[in-house]
């Protein structure tokens, strides 16, 4: 796939190609500006008007790039599910969060209001959200980022998509919420058996959840391999640099914390 800015002609992502199999998790790693998010949005065909893309996006044999806009819309949510970076901004600020769930599920399944509430309540319970029905009547600003993030995961559980794209789902959260959201994402994979693309710049998170890793820099894929391969013996200098930077930080941190050895992030 190739993505470029049509107003300036600047290429944002060069010919990049990767695949995710059913039940596996692929992590896309790289600095900010390396083209991770643009790639994710390109898969959903949701980049802004000035971003153009070419190439194929195959999902279960269907080329998403060839679909009409209406067919693509039916695929979004139902087959491809996005989990956004910032839960606080992902929901319409002037409607209760429940209205988003109702609109989405009604759109794809045509369920009644009570069916939607009971299914969502069950899914929200499974991501450890207390009192789901009351939460659905709250406005986004009345909830925390971690709660909203888990609500997006709950919606994904109900939607049962083929592929979940999690675009830096934890980087806007504090460490504790980050931990909880990661647990839920791992559980979500186990529960639905779906494929997942996990975008992050945090290598320790990647190590926990991913089966395969793609390393991106400046719109190019530098390296592609299984998590074990990349972490044990990477060939590319840039990836080594990323890993070393992380190890240096950890050493520094544990020195300052008085030599605590269990710190691994």
């Amino acid at each position: 796939m190739r993505i470029w800015d049509h107003t300036t002609g600047k290429v944002v992502v060069y010919n990049s190609s990767f695949q995710v199999s059913q039940g596996r998790c692929l992590a896309i790693v790289g600095e900010s500006g390396s083209g991770k998010s643009v790639t994710c949005r390109a898969i959903m065909r949701l980049n802004t008007f000035k971003m153009r893309q070419s190439g194929n996006i195959r999902l279960n044999g269907v080329d998403l790039a060839e679909l009409s806009e209406a067919d693509m819309r039916r695929h979004r949510g139902r087959h491809l599910c996005l989990i956004m970076q910032n839960g606080m901004r992902a929901f319409d600020p002037s409607s209760p969060v429940g209205s988003h769930f109702r609109d989405t599920l009604w759109q794809h399944y045509g369920w009644s209001r009570s069916q939607i509430t009971s299914r969502m309540a069950k899914a929200m319970g499974s991501v450890r959200l207390q009192d789901p029905v009351a939460l659905m009547n709250k406005y986004p600003h009345q909830l925390s980022g971690g709660m909203l993030q888990r609500m997006m995961i709950a919606l994904a559980i109900v939607l049962e998509p083929t592929l979940i794209i999690a675009d830096e789902p934890t980087s806007a959260l504090d460490t504790l919420s980050q931990y909880e959201v990661m647990e839920q994402l791992i559980a979500l994979r186990a529960e639905t058996g779906c494929a997942m693309i996990f975008v992050s710049h945090d290598l320790s998170l990647v190590q926990r959840i991913a089966d395969d890793i793609v390393v991106m820099r400046d719109g190019e894929i530098l390296e592609h391999g299984t998590t074990a391969d990349i972490f044990s013996g990477t060939r590319h200098e840039y990836t080594r640099h990323l890993l070393e930077a992380k190890q240096r930080l950890n050493r520094n941190f544990s020195n300052r914390m008085g030599g605590l050895q269990h710190v691994d992030r």
Binding site: R76, H100, M152
Partner: peptide, 14 residues
Amino acid sequence: YEDYTLYARACGLP
């Protein structure tokens, strides 16, 4: 360009 419009689109809302 707010995130919520992107998320609404990503969920397949019309």
